[in-house]
Design a binder for these strands. Structure first.
Lengths: 181, 181
DNA sequence: TATTTTGTTCAAAAAATATTGAACAAAATA
DNA sequence: TATTTTGTTCAATATTTTTTGAACAAAATA
């Protein structure tokens, strides 16, 4: 893996007290740990590692970064960065920003983690739950064509499953309110 | 893929009315659809497909199945079935049952989907959330060593993240109650 | 005890998924 | 308009994950 952060921050002020002179190094540590954190979150919600890296880098950035910045700092191909940014923009986790005097796109976080979670909840979890409902109902109707014994056994199990699915649907709004609001 | 269900059910009764004579075929359809359903659920919570297949097959089974039964009906290797069953037993989704006159292990579902979810919530989601907390706190402490400007910017973002994490922790018990209870 | 049956483990193969990089198109500049 | 810069797409490659199957150990049977 390549170096993570340039010396920019250190060079921006003329004077810093001794303990703060260590800042660039500390900043690198913090940056690496931030990226690591978001890589975990990404993997947790089923995104590839690279998406987490990009998000983590933007989390630490003090200004919007260009595609090239991202590739360079994360040692990642342009293709990956482009795809990752596209996906992250898709879930409203990242937005494009105009920076005067630079004709390249610049990227920064859009809102906070809640927005990212909202995307996940609404575009992955919710449809998933809905799909389960469709499948359970389809199964239920087909079970009616079975022999009595089989039908009874199935319906018992399906009933519990249907019940559980209802609960899952019931808790969704609360999750969206608390985590995605 | 191989045939899914033997003719057993059809052969168990001497007479069935015309419409029910179709039962074996219907049963196969239902079985395939059940397995499909649980494959989705498995993939949803990050288990391999084969785990879902096993669970789905056991969901449809009228009696505890042996390892060989499972391999045969799902056209799956012994190794896969063994590993899948081990994992499913680990999350209390499947249990071993003694069947007189058969020295092979027999497997059946343990409780309903709630138990499986409980396993997922307690053994995956909860530790994941806890790990995030640890990482966020580690980051927070390291941010204190940064320069003032950086520190301020970071703490703003970290504050929101910490806040979000608290909400996530808060909603866990409700999820466990509704989905895993 | 020797043989068979049963289930587990793990290295290797296969499958699924993510990443790369070169070709391309679109937009900006010369 | 020709050239350069920028970002996207997608086939090829690399990586990760899952599955297989043969070797093994444990338990049951002969």
């Amino acid at each position: 893996m390549r170096s993570f952060l340039p010396m920019k921050q250190a060079l921006e002020s003329d004077f810093t007290p001794p303990v703060e002179a260590l800042s660039p190094k500390n900043f690198q540590v913090v940056e690496v740990e931030s990226i690591d954190l978001f890589v975990r979150i990404a993997q947790f919600i089923g995104f590839p590692k690279s998406f987490g890296e990009i998000y983590g880098l933007l989390f630490t950035a003090s200004e919007p970064l260009s595609l090239d910045d991202i590739c360079e700092r994360l040692n990642m191909s342009k293709g990956s960065a482009s795809q990752g940014l596209k996906a992250l923009r898709g879930v409203h986790a990242v937005k494009t920003t105009y920076v005067p005097g630079d004709r390249r796109d610049r990227f920064e976080l859009e809102g906070n983690i809640r927005l990212l979670m909202q995307g996940f909840l609404q575009e992955r979890l919710e449809p998933g739950i809905r799909d389960l409902g469709v499948r359970i109902e389809s199964l239920s109707s087909k079970v009616n064509a079975l022999q009595n014994g089989e039908k009874k056994r199935y319906n018992e199990r399906l009933g519990k499953l249907r019940n559980w699915h209802k609960q899952a649907q019931k808790i969704m709004p609360a999750m969206e309110r608390l985590l995605g609001g």
